[in-house]
């Protein structure tokens, strides 16, 4: 009797241990997968470029990058997990709110230099993955610096009105009649990659002129103009072959043999180079359908 009970207990113990190991491996795999997805989202969303200073040896994601725009100079914040200067105390909900509604954990309205006007369409899984990745980057003990803006733009509550007028925090909507590649491309171009933030012109209030989507922006950031990337054959990229668009996204090579420079070279190096082949094809599929606009 005793021997039987001992065998049962031993058997139960082995089963419990096996379940614990299985659970640990499964959770570990899921965590690693989430972080891997998070790193991909982080790359394609271009977080590093804007949130890292340009000076030699600048701590990654510690902020301080100067974004010179026609409205003034914005200094990006620290998004490392530092509890005081970064987003170490932010919950997933706080990050979601910043990305979708342009509001900080402290309910401060954020300037749209942070492209929540595009990120608002991010799917929950991508935000969760991004958060999982950002939680594990090294903390940087670097305080945020104030933006350098004219006095009339420093009053943040006005951003509430700006958002009422110009920000639509709707999630990305798949178009059922379009292919999966087209929908993925639209999501990458318009949401994660936020291409329109530079390539779409803005009105006098600094809001995107959605009727001229990707139609080019002579007053881009840091003095760089952003060209028309609609399918217009002369003013846009309508005469580029799919292979030429693919090559430009991947390496920066233009069909005439020139090679990208300025901000776009940075975007390619920090972000687009990391696109999977499947996602590059999706981007090409979508870009070849963007309505043509003249300059």
């Amino acid at each position: 009797m005793f021997a039987y009970s001992a065998r049962r207990r031993a058997g139960g113990g082995v089963l419990l241990l096996s379940l614990m190991v299985w659970w640990g491996v499964a959770v570990g795999d899921a965590g690693a997968e989430l972080q891997q997805r998070g790193e991909y989202v982080f790359r394609i969303a271009g977080c590093k470029g804007c949130h890292t200073g340009k000076e030699e040896g600048a701590a990654p994601l510690a902020g301080g990058r100067r974004l010179e725009t026609p409205l003034g100079t914005f200094l990006s914040p620290n998004i490392t997990p530092h509890p005081e200067h970064g987003i170490g105390r932010w919950s997933l909900g706080d990050v979601s709110r910043a990305l979708r509604s342009g509001e900080s954990r402290e309910s401060i309205h954020l300037y749209p230099a942070f492209p929540y006007t595009s990120y608002a369409g991010m799917v929950d899984e991508d935000i969760q993955a991004l958060m999982a990745y950002l939680e594990r980057v090294p903390k940087a003990d670097k305080p945020n610096q104030p933006h350098e803006l004219p006095w009339y733009l420093r009053y943040r509550p006005l951003l509430y009105l700006w958002k009422l007028l110009f920000h639509d925090p709707e999630p990305f909507v798949r178009q059922a009649e379009k292919s999966a590649a087209w929908n993925r491309g639209a999501y990458l171009v318009n949401v994660l990659g936020h291409c329109g933030e530079c390539h779409t012109p803005r009105n006098i209030f600094g809001a995107l002129d959605r009727e001229r989507h990707l139609g080019g922006n002579p007053g881009g950031i840091e003095g760089d103009s952003a060209p028309n990337i609609t399918t217009h054959p002369d003013d846009g990229i309508g005469d580029w072959s799919p292979g030429e668009i693919r090559e430009y996204v991947r390496s920066g090579l233009l069909p005439d043999g020139d090679v990208a420079g300025g901000i776009m070279a940075e975007v390619i190096e920090e972000s687009l180079e990391y696109l999977s082949d499947e996602d590059i094809d999706a981007v090409v599929t979508y870009l070849r359908t963007v309505p043509a606009l003249e300059d």
């Binding site: 881009g220 103009s225 390496s251 920066g252 090679v259 420079g261 776009m264 190096e269």
Partner: peptide
């Protein structure tokens, strides 16, 4: 080679106005 072209253009060439 294209990477080196890009590296140089990024730092030493103005974007088209």
């Amino acid at each position: 080679l294209l990477d080196t072209c890009k590296g140089c253009h990024k730092e030493y060439r103005e974007k088209k106005k």
